[in-house]
Design a protein around this nucleic acid. Structure first.
Lengths: 204, 204
DNA sequence: ATTGCGACTGATTGACCAGTCAATCAAGGA
DNA sequence: TCCTTGATTGACTGGTCAATCAGTCGCAAT
């Protein structure tokens, strides 16, 4: 009788896939997506060129996989923050804090997603845009739910866009090392400045 | 005697250069910089392939020229808004209004600069970064000058980053047609929402 | 032992495209 | 008329690189 036991072990397959993904992330962070040859990824991972294509359909699929993974986690965390309840201020601090912390823990991955996916026309395809929209809608939902805490006339959709935009540029600035430090205290300070500015404005 | 009169007419040379630049801008807006072949630009401009290289050093130089032109004008306008005086609110409204208006009048050019220069690691070279920094510093200067109108503890540099970041994402959203309309009224509304949020916050 | 399968290799291929260049054209001056 | 010079043309070259593929290796089941 044929054995049910599959010849390919899914667990080790996934493990190797992740290993390649991590190597690719390092390479992309160093030289950019376009500047990274598939051979560079193979070298970084310590495997042969052709093996990349055993684990990924093509070069684009590697970047997409990175983005989808990060984005899925992000969406779940934001949903968790929302579900947990609390004030609007606490939720916004949670959202901003999560992305800033993600960068502290996984700087390469965040940098690559920010620079190569969110900012590249090429990767703004249907799948990614809809993933994108999911996060925006979730944040917009938070603003709608907390409408009582907002000044009248504040548009939730526009506010969501402005908040994420400001957060994005904050991260971009930190990545470029133009802005503040990378330690936990500096991150906390940036997060608070962002949330305070949004909630209370800069006017005296 | 040799004539002083130059054989090459600088005025018509510049005119043709601008013509090519406009054709390239259209092509870049439609297919992205990387997706546009030099042949596409030539076709769009109705000239031969090789002639592009008579007017520009290479493909990159075309995009750089577009950026430098736009950025130079922007910096001058922002300086003018600052010099003209007025309240902080008026100045911020002026800055945001200028960029939004620029997009209404020259959508292709603004879109290309936004998507292909500001967001591309490749074009963030020394020249462009320093041009970039000029605008940031000018805006930061405005916040410093109006410190009396600000809440204590507001960091001018961080505020400048957040303001331009939010403005950038607002434009990006409008370009993607996800957000609001493109008519003058919608633009005015977005501009006011941005400035109001920054000055007074969203909290009630 | 042998066979079947997934893991793995890296040289080769084929497409793409920026940039070059030799040749032609048009206009002005001698 | 003939020369000079800049404008113009587009076929061609050279380099790059993603993706393929023919094959090797090692293990596990029969």
């Amino acid at each position: 009788m044929p054995e049910d036991r599959p010849r390919r072990d899914p667990a080790s397959f996934e493990a190797k896939r992740r290993e390649i993904l991590r190597a690719a992330t390092r390479a992309f962070a160093r030289k950019g997506f376009a500047g990274t040859r598939v051979g560079d990824i193979a070298q970084e991972a310590g495997i042969a060129y052709g093996l990349i294509y055993h684990y990924f359909d093509n070069k684009d699929a590697i970047l997409s996989s990175l983005f989808q993974g990060m984005w899925g986690v992000s969406l779940k965390v934001i949903e968790g923050i929302d579900a947990q309840g609390g004030t609007l201020e606490e939720k916004l601090r949670g959202v901003a804090g999560f992305f800033l912390e993600a960068w502290r823990l996984e700087p390469d991955a965040v940098e690559v997603v920010l620079k190569e996916v969110l900012r590249s026309p090429k990767f703004l395809d249907a799948d990614n845009v809809s993933a994108f929209r999911g996060l925006f809608e979730r944040l917009e939902g938070i603003f709608v739910a907390h409408a009582a805490e907002l000044r009248p006339g504040v548009d939730p959709k526009l506010t969501a866009v402005l908040f994420l935009g400001a957060l994005e540029i904050l991260l971009t600035g930190m990545i470029a090392r133009e802005l503040l430090g990378a330690d936990a205290a500096a991150i906390e300070q940036s997060r608070d400045a962002l949330v305070d500015t949004f909630l209370h404005g800069i006017a005296g």
